[in-house]
Every structure is written in C-alpha cells, then in structure tokens.
Design a protein around this nucleic acid. Sequence first.
DNA 1: CTAAACAGTGGAGTACGGTCCAAGGTCAAG
DNA 2: CTTGACCTTGGACCGTACTCCACTGTTTAG
Lengths: 140, 140
Amino acid sequence: MRIGELAAQTGMTRDTIRFYEKVGLIAGRRLANGYRDFPPEAVAWLQYVRAAQTLGFSLAEIARTGEELRGVPDASEALSALFEEKIKLVDARMSELAALRTELAERVGTGCPLRAVVPDGNGGGNPTGRPSPKALGPVN
Amino acid sequence: MRIGELAAQTGMTRDTIRFYEKVGLIAGRRLANGYRDFPPEAVAWLQYVRAAQTLGFSLAEIARTGEELRGVPDASEALSALFEEKIKLVDARMSELAALRTELAERVGTGCPLRAVVPDGNGGGNPTGRPSPKALGPVN
DNA sequence: CTAAACAGTGGAGTACGGTCCAAGGTCAAG
DNA sequence: CTTGACCTTGGACCGTACTCCACTGTTTAG
C-alpha cells in the first residue's frame, strides 16, 4: 500500500504519515522506485495511534510502546505486561477525571464565587454584595 | 500579592504567570511602581487552571471559561451551567478511556499480534510462526 | 550608599505535533 | 510524448505552552 491509500484509509494526510515515519511511529519499506510501501496492518496501527493519542499519550510514548514490542523473543507476554501498564495509566487518568467531576458537581448550584477569582479589572471587589464563601477550595 | 509570592504559592515560575497574563488567563492590577498585584484568590484560580489543564483543557478553553464568567449579571447560574458542561466533557473523556481500557484488557493474555502491525524493517513476515489473528481489530 | 533581591520589558529559543511548499522523479493513459 | 496523478526530499512555517535571557528599574537590608 502506498502512502496515498494509507492516508485515505486513515484520514491522515501524507505529510502526517511521513512525519510519523520520521519520528519512528511507523516504518515504511520502499519500493524499487523509492515510494513507501506499507502493509495493510498499518491502517489499524495508525488508528490505534490516533486513539492512544486522543487519550493523552504523546507520540513518543506511543512509539516507545511499539519499540518495546519489537526485539522481544516472545511478544505475547510482553504485550500483556504492556497492556496492563497502559490500563494502570488509564485508570489513573480516569480517577483524576472523577475527582474533577466531583469538584465540579459540588459547585453546581452553590453559587461558588469563581468570579471573585477571575481578576477582571473592576478592582476585585464583590459587586454582587453576596458573601464570598472561600473561592474554589483546595483543588490539589 | 506580588508575582514572586504568587509563584511561590502555586509552584509556577514568574515567567509562567506573566505568560498567563499575556494570554488573558489572569489579569494583574498594577501597583504605583508598575509591579503586578494579585488578589489572594489568584492562588486558587491558578490551581484550578493547573487542574483543568492536566485534564486536557487548553489554556484557551480555560481562559474562555473565565471570560464567560465575567460580564454575566448573576454569575451563580452561569457557573452551574458551565460546570455542568465541563462535567459532560469529563464524562465523555472518561468513557473514551473506559473503552480503551476494555480494548486493552481484552488483549491481555491473548497474544494479539500488535507486533505484526509495528513495521520493524525485518520484512513484515511472521517470524514467530504463530498465526496472525487479525491485528488489533477496530479501534474506532 | 551600596548590594542583593525582586520587579519590569522585549525577544529569542524549545518541544511537540503537525502543515505547507517548491523542486523534482515516476508512472499510466491518451 | 505529453499530461496529470502520484510520489520523493528538504526546509520553512504554525500554534501551544512555556522557558530563558539581557537589560533596566525598585525596594529593602546592612
């Protein structure tokens, strides 16, 4: 598969794929004429890359995952370990999100004065006359 | 509060705070000598910024949130609406993560050939002799 | 009064993740 | 044999989020 088709099938641009090759995310073999040639699995791999990326993994991290999978005698075990690691990361991210969600949910309807916390040039007073119940609390 | 103290209390550098002011994330009033002067609430605000940021919100998004909170006659309702919106975003992110988690968990112990999908210059063959059960499946 | 600590500005540089462009090579159809 | 689609490379450029630097002004402690 040449770069154009891979681009079409993944929704990425040719430039993006060339960039990914440059940073080691994907390795193209070459045809006799110098054109890149990708196996069909490259489509799935790039979709995985996109998925991982939108979940907050950097290209370097994703590439490292790929790297670690190569050069391992039996990939099966290594894969399981790697996936378990990723799951831990995902779980950690999820609980961070859950914490923020709780934070946010608590503030709904309480009239918490985030406003007092957004400097707005009006002098930082309390123009509403309402009391200021502590402003946002511990976020960390 | 001057910039140095704010920096110390938030763990940010002065440069970062100046940068945040430049992009409208925080607005400093000025003392007679030109020094920035921040209200104590700025600490909580910057902590909130960090929290939101590590959860994947861009500075522009965070700034917009702040913007929207200003110029609203009664901030309390606007705040609740905004928080509910953020909660939806957080929920969406969490379910994406949950989906990836499932994906990953399913692959643990299955020996799924992600390797076949990471071009490695050895020709793309199947050096292990094991069959290739479809490589990664639908990620989207 | 001087030195250090703190503040200000503008501008350059960095890392990441692309995106665009110019100049040219390859290939199939007409 | 030309046209057009497709491919190559290298390098410039963009937005985001800082980070560092040089140079200058202000405040504070000895």
